[in-house]
Nucleic acid binder design. Structure first.
Lengths: 117, 117
DNA sequence: ATCATTGTATTATGTGAATAGTACAAGCGG
DNA sequence: CCGCTTGTACTATTCACATAATACAATGAT
């Protein structure tokens, strides 16, 4: 996994978002075993505590589960994963439209700009 | 001006974004006088130092200018303001497309989801 | 001339994110 | 059984953001 962070958002939030994305698009597959907290932390060059915090939150969302001393795994619920992808996409669509509205562009104008891109 | 902040981004960054938006869409007009730092801070319910920090940065961008003891004003450069609006819109478009690409949607599929919205 | 308001600067304090370092129970493999 | 790896927990420290409380020079209005 390739990690990159910017400075304006807490790192653990960005980790959550990036892992969610990886799950949603199948870069992590249902049932996959994750690297250990320490390995992931090392890979992302963050503190293990920070990685742990992000993983715990993903677990609360049901996207991961833990087997006590054996490791963490991606949920096997493929429906949940498909729903996640759709949800993330919908969030992007709604965010885009609302931001463009704030900037004074109608949905039609926004769509036009997309086409011209 | 109506202020609202979320917790995941530094407040002074959010202030910058919101004022930029207000300038871009003409809620603040070219040459307008702003409220004083203290008044704006009070209105937004933040510390004057925080407001000051945001305003200074906007000034560095050339969107505001200061007349030492008389107050702060929006730039009179209407071309710059028009360019700002276009730039913010372009950022939204590019961000939207790139995020949708990451989620595995082509530009055409993204445009389709927009239409269906 | 006086005074209030302007932006600006400074110091101290509080808070949450992130790091560093350490510790421990649980289980798997040898 | 032993040792390694797992997740997890805890304390201490650093850092940036934010706040609180002042202070001051410049200037426009009274």
């Amino acid at each position: 996994m390739l990690w990159n962070f910017n400075s304006n958002t807490p790192i653990y939030i960005q980790i959550i978002e990036q892992i969610k994305l990886s799950i949603a698009v199948g870069e992590y597959k249902a049932g996959d075993k994750l690297l250990s907290v320490r390995e992931l932390a090392s890979e992302a060059e963050v503190n293990p505590n920070t990685m742990q915090k992000a993983l715990s939150e993903l677990e609360r969302d049901g996207l991961l589960y833990t087997q006590r001393t054996s490791g963490r795994f991606i949920t096997s619920d493929t429906l949940k994963i498909a729903a996640l992808r759709k949800q993330l996409a919908n969030e992007q669509v709604e965010n885009f439209i609302s931001k463009m509205k704030l900037l004074g562009y109608s949905s039609e104008e926004a769509a036009e700009m997309l086409k011209d891109h």
